[in-house]
Design a protein around this nucleic acid. Structure first.
Lengths: 309, 309
DNA sequence: TTTATCCATGCGATTTGCGCAAGAGTTGGC
DNA sequence: GCCAACTCTTGCGCAAATCGCATGGATAAA
């Protein structure tokens, strides 16, 4: 047989109070319960821990040592469980997410800031990359979840829509088409087109949109970095089309943006998690913040400050 | 309600083995017991810890964290109780004793060495001093016990005889009385007497012995340090009488020792402990060594190596 | 399709835990 | 010197927890 936490806790209280009666009041059990618990502990250890006459309770040398050990054990239990409960409630721990660079740079800062104010002890880990890499992070478990476009379904992943992000046209400030409030993909097809790199999920969508209106010309230039793209547009090399969320990353160049229709093209950002896996509590808490922010199903407005509330 | 060690241990085994059946075999309980214990733990924490289909048992993120915490707690209990049992058996801990300088220097070294060989992890603390200080150490609890003469009984102390230590005469090598094999206190009374300091328990006995033979002269000199006394005797300033155990401390001077009778005077060294107090296990173990060394009631022989065996 | 394996659960027996109340011993006041 | 008050111990009975057995349901392997 081995000692139980119950016994150690009982002994601890009695030894600290130097009284069975006082300890019983403190633990809200009857005094006889403690008498038995201590007697059992003594029997199991084979030593007298408390020297008790009817007036005083006094620790023996063995009792002192047992007190120290009992304190360690009970405290390890108490603090361990407390820590665990904080983890389970999402108050502490690590929240690891993977997402596209635009989401990471534009959407997350305010949300993370709000989340950290709510749960200051959660470590937030953000890994950004292109869709393929982001999905890979989730599949490998590096990330608890992702916010990303998702090209192909997988039975190893679950996903649900989070936000719709509409493409807008991007033109040099002085471009003739900049007069109009609204452009079409056919309008863009008449101009040299500046595209993002072929790995980007955005590229898939622009290619598809042009194909839909029967335009097949290759891009005039490609840049994987959006700021570079912004610079090229500002320099008058051509026009582009990008999701609203990406626009703040265009950089300091003088460009203008316009509504883009015919057709309206959106990319959909989903929350992606591993199938049949429960999220770590801190990550679940972050997802709540994410979805509570009324982002759900909403479209990203043209301005960048849409999440300000 | 709070988690019990039973539950944590059960979860630990299941999580480590990733199998209820294997864990049950390891813990030698039925598989249903573990199934319940884990379910209870999950219910109390309000989280699913193990994702189990009929083929695999897999930890959730919460399960991983719980595993870490459970390991800490169970390990703290296991190692704490192990340490405690070692302390209680006297294998570890501290043995603190107080004793007279002669005992400390002459009697203890061999005993402590034997004891340390037997129990290498016990710290031995020896405090030496004169009787009054030694007794004080025991009363204050600084020392677990003492080996000392004990002048006055106290109801706060228990004591039992350990060893008898006979006084012997000490003379300059070339002294006329050195011819004889055996001297009397009357013989010594005819010579200048070199006494130990008035605080020493030895002094009480020499004074009493001289009084018994009707000699009342004051000592020719006093020295609290026995080596000093030895030097004085060697220099021919007079003679002395000291317990056999003290003689090895006389120092390098050329002195001789002789049996001393008329009357035979002994000091008795007792083991002194606090009344109504249990000894720390390590101290009790040392006392056993002390009393097992067949010292009990024996007289210190003239040579210093009497304990060599 | 059958078989084997694994976890969950109903059931009954046993053990454990608990409080009440009485007992025993000591202190302090009258 | 006796009694009242206080404290720990212990007998007893009840309630709850714990356990193992046997069974059921589900799935993977043969």
């Amino acid at each position: 047989m081995d000692t139980t936490l119950r016994q150690l806790t009982a002994y601890l209280a009695v030894a600290r109070e130097a009284s069975f009666t006082a300890a019983a009041a403190q633990l809200r059990v009857s005094q006889s319960t403690l008498s038995r618990a201590v007697a059992d502990l003594e029997r199991m250890l084979g030593v007298r821990l408390l020297e008790r006459d009817t007036r005083n309770v006094q620790l023996t040398a063995a009792g002192e040592e047992t007190l120290r050990v009992a304190e360690q054990i009970v405290d390890a239990h108490r603090s361990g469980m407390k820590e665990l409960r904080r983890y389970l409630s999402g108050e502490s721990g690590v929240m690891a997410m993977a997402t596209l660079p635009s989401v990471a740079a534009v959407l997350l800062p305010r949300l993370v800031s709000a989340f950290r104010r709510q749960r200051p002890e959660v470590t937030v880990r953000i890994m950004d990359g292109l869709e393929r890499a982001v999905i890979g992070r989730v599949l490998s478990g590096d990330a608890d979840f992702a916010v990303t476009t998702i090209g192909a379904a997988s039975d190893r992943l679950d996903h649900r829509p989070l936000i719709r992000d509409r493409f807008r046209a991007v033109l040099p400030e002085s471009h003739p088409l900049a007069d109009r409030d609204e452009l079409t993909w056919e309008d863009l097809a008449t101009e040299p087109f500046l595209a993002v790199g072929p790995q980007s999920s955005v590229r898939r969508l622009t290619d598809a949109a042009f194909a839909q209106v029967g335009a097949t010309a290759a891009p005039a230039a490609e840049a994987s970095n959006v700021a570079t793209l912004g610079g090229l547009v500002a320099a008058g090399l051509g026009v582009s089309a990008l999701p609203a969320l990406v626009l703040p990353l265009l950089g300091p160049g003088r460009v203008v943006q316009r509504d883009l229709v015919g057709p309206v093209v959106e990319r959909r950002l989903d929350v992606v998690v591993r199938a049949r896996r429960t999220l770590p509590p801190a990550a679940a808490a972050f997802l709540e913040v994410l979805e509570e922010a009324r982002v759900d199903g909403r479209e990203v407005p043209p301005g960048a400050s849409w999440i300000a509330r």
